[in-house]
Design a binder for these strands. Structure first.
Lengths: 323, 323
DNA sequence: TTGTACGCGTTATCAC
DNA sequence: GTGATAACGCGTACAA
């Protein structure tokens, strides 16, 4: 290949990497030769020599929540054109799985690492830190300075939608949650904070299930909640999927929404706008989190000087018929 | 590391790969030494020397359809414990994107390749063939012998659910579809075939939209279909998400399901059992497709002698309240 | 700006 | 069953 372009191998190498310090004429010749020969540099040899691959490990809890699909989509759109290749790992909210994924993929010497939230095992944290691989945390914000992260305040967003229910005149506002991951618990804290300030917090109106979030579970939680506290006049579901399940249960049981019970969700997932009635929810900036997080990582991978801090994004209340 | 175990590097290499022809005593010593040192073989060096990595490229059209998420989950569960690592690529039903992904990832010298269906560009097909990488096709079946694939007959499944509607006494059976990928069109063919045999095929009852499948689109298709042919007494939606949208539209418009119009979906996605009324649908074996496809690939990667052919799996009609 | 010499960490080959 | 040697195909470091 270098022969075809009549340059030394190293010049070809530099030209193909678009490294600086190569005569444009030679670079041109190299690119043409590569094109004609269909030459593609071997990523393995490249990784071995440079101790760095073009892969970026992206760890998400699930793919069954479209939230993370949107996030991944944005990450891909941002990284791929820059020559970095996302390698998706699914943790299932399991720190042991996350650790195994890190042990498996960190030896690939990835160029970067994108992880969800801050909650992980001690061992995982150390694996990341000792690897020296640039890492950005997504979906949450941190108060610790110097930690690269892009997210929004789950706490405040949870409080904001609770306040919306208060503003609608509701007084017996319940909270139904599943999964109970850190971000859900932060929303729960926001809910409590908001109601406590209003003097309306009642622990018996919280229904927390460790089960995997699903539409079917939402239906069950809705029924359980109404059976337990028939006087509830609003329910804040921690995620749109269980909120949709709640709305469907209401429809099945003939319970008027929002007249008898208002229903609010979280994340504005697909289909929420099509429910009957349409679901009030909090639109969270997951695509923007993916984009900005990947962009921050790009900077770090290329050796940005100023240590990037924490980027806090906005969420948006979407008021629809269910409240 | 080899020093620590007091053996030559090559013996260590063989021991760690569990290659045959190593004294169990030495192998033991090597494994212990690796354990103590926290030694992990470098995948890049391994790939460079052996011309083969442990990665398996998996190409799916979308992640927003939980069908493919289930598929990927099963693939991961099958490959990962065997030391192979799925690398997910999303094509968005775009052959140019698929080709780019192949051009990008094939140079990694993956151990195997898992692709969705048979419909791809000439160039993509050649890239795969010339790479020599073992490849299994998923979700469809092929009549061509010798092509490794795991799937089911989309055509017959489409015909079967249409027959169910006939059996329910419906005579004006419509077909609503989105996305219009090859598998959707095969279901359409099954629908036509079934109705034509019954002498009830009416092209004006087909509504095909190239738009991306979604709940919102399903609602729109439902309304359009009823406006166009008020005498429709059943609608077969090509996928559960648009079927769910149809049911929600019916609920919103006060159209009785199934009394006025029966509704059937396809794939049995999350939430279909929670609809009001619950959605009749075709349960497709995507997890089994993932598992069996990955298992077939495992055989090929390890050099199975008998060229694996086509595995055809079963689907299952799930009758619920909507019909 | 370009080139030389070397090494990255592992496995293939072939001898012992 | 085990080991010596070489090579995999690039990039780094330094020299020119």
């Amino acid at each position: 290949m270098a022969r075809a372009a009549e340059v030394s191998p190293i010049t070809a190498s530099r030209a193909l990497r678009n490294a600086r310090g190569v005569d444009p004429t030679l670079a041109q010749r190299v690119h043409e030769a590569a094109e004609q020969l269909g030459y593609v540099p071997d990523p393995a040899a490249r990784a071995l020599a440079s101790q760095r691959s073009s892969q970026v490990i992206v760890l998400v809890p699930l793919l069954s929540n479209t939230l993370f699909v949107d996030l991944l989509e944005a990450v891909h759109r941002t990284l791929f054109p820059e020559g970095y290749h996302p390698l998706i790992g699914v943790t299932h909210y399991d720190s042991a799985e996350e650790e195994l994924l890190l042990r498996t993929y960190l030896p690939l010497r990835p160029a970067g690492l994108l992880v969800t939230g801050f909650d992980r095992s001690e061992a995982s944290g150390q694996l990341i830190a000792r690897s020296g691989v640039p890492c950005v945390h997504l979906m949450e914000t941190s108060t610790t300075p110097g930690v690269p992260c892009v997210g929004f305040s789950q706490h405040d967003a949870g409080a904001a939608i609770t306040r919306h229910l208060l503003d609608r005149g509701r007084r017996r506002i319940a909270f139904c949650a599943a999964q109970l991951d850190p971000r859900v618990m932060q929303r729960a804290a926001g809910y409590r904070h908001c109601l406590a300030q209003a003097g309306l917090y009642d622990p018996s109106l919280e229904l927390l299930s460790p089960e995997r979030s699903s539409i079917a579970l939402g239906a069950r939680l809705f029924e359980d909640m109404l059976a337990r506290a028939p006087d509830v006049d609003a329910i804040f579901f921690c995620n749109d999927d269980i909120a949709q399940g709640g709305l469907l249960a209401a429809s099945r049981l003939g319970i008027a929404v929002p007249d008898r019970v208002a229903v609010a969700g979280f994340n504005d997932l697909a289909g929420s706008d099509q429910m009957v009635p349409p679901l009030t929810t909090m639109r969270t900036p997951r695509s923007e989190v993916g984009r900005a997080g990947a962009a921050m990582l790009l900077g770090m991978m290329r050796g940005s000087q100023p240590a990037p801090g924490c980027v806090e994004l906005d969420y948006e209340l979407v008021v629809r018929g269910s409240t």
